[in-house]
Amino acid sequence: MATRDSMSTLTQQVEDTIRFAEEQYKQSSMQEQYNDDNYIQALQRLEQMYQDIATMAHSANGQQREQLHRMRLQVQQLQNSLILQGSRGGEQF
């Protein structure tokens, strides 16, 4: 079973990463030119969170795995949104 502290830490990291990525998504929606470095960093951070969630799931109990699964879905949805938005803007990732 994953410890309560490790789950709490991961949850906070995921929330922070999602907030950062959502901010990049909003900024790129409002303007034609946006900070490519931050946009790419948001995608990289989301991917790292996805991997961290998968790793944590290996040592999680059933309830924790359900919570991790919901977090993983949020991360994936935001990744997909960023990628689609980037492809519309001519960016390639």
Rank of each mutant, 00 (worst) to 15 (best):
M1Q: 11
M1K: 07
A2M: 06
A2D: 06
T3M: 03
T3C: 01
T3K: 09
D5S: 15
M7E: 01
M7A: 04
T11A: 03
T11E: 06
T11Y: 02
Q12G: 00
Q12K: 06
V14S: 03
V14H: 03
E15L: 11
T17G: 07
R19S: 03
F20R: 13
A21N: 01
A21L: 01
A21W: 12
E22H: 01
E22I: 04
E22D: 12
E23H: 12
Y25L: 14
Y25N: 12
K26R: 11
Q27T: 10
S28F: 13
S28V: 13
S29A: 11
Q31P: 04
Q31D: 00
Q33L: 15
Q33G: 14
Q33T: 15
Y39W: 13
I40G: 12
I40T: 14
Q41N: 15
Q41R: 15
Q44T: 08
Q44D: 05
R45K: 15
L46A: 00
E47R: 05
E47Q: 05
M49I: 08
Y50K: 13
Y50H: 03
Q51H: 04
Q51P: 05
Q51D: 08
D52Q: 13
D52T: 09
I53Q: 01
I53W: 02
A54T: 03
A54H: 08
T55H: 05
M56A: 12
A57S: 02
H58S: 04
S59V: 03
S59M: 05
S59P: 07
S59E: 10
S59I: 08
A60K: 06
N61I: 11
N61P: 13
N61A: 07
G62F: 01
Q67D: 06
Q67S: 11
Q67P: 07
Q67F: 10
L68I: 02
H69Q: 14
R70M: 11
R70A: 12
M71A: 05
M71G: 13
R72M: 04
L73N: 07
L73V: 01
Q74Y: 01
Q74F: 09
Q74M: 06
Q74C: 02
V75W: 06
V75I: 14
Q76T: 10
Q76E: 05
Q77F: 00
Q77Y: 05
Q77C: 05
N80M: 12
N80Y: 02
N80T: 12
S81L: 09
S81M: 02
L82W: 02
L82Q: 08
I83C: 05
I83P: 04
I83F: 12
I83Y: 12
L84V: 14
Q85H: 14
Q85R: 09
G86F: 13
S87C: 06
R88N: 04
R88F: 06
G89S: 14
G90T: 00
E91K: 13
Q92M: 07
Q92C: 08
Q92E: 06
F93T: 07
F93V: 00
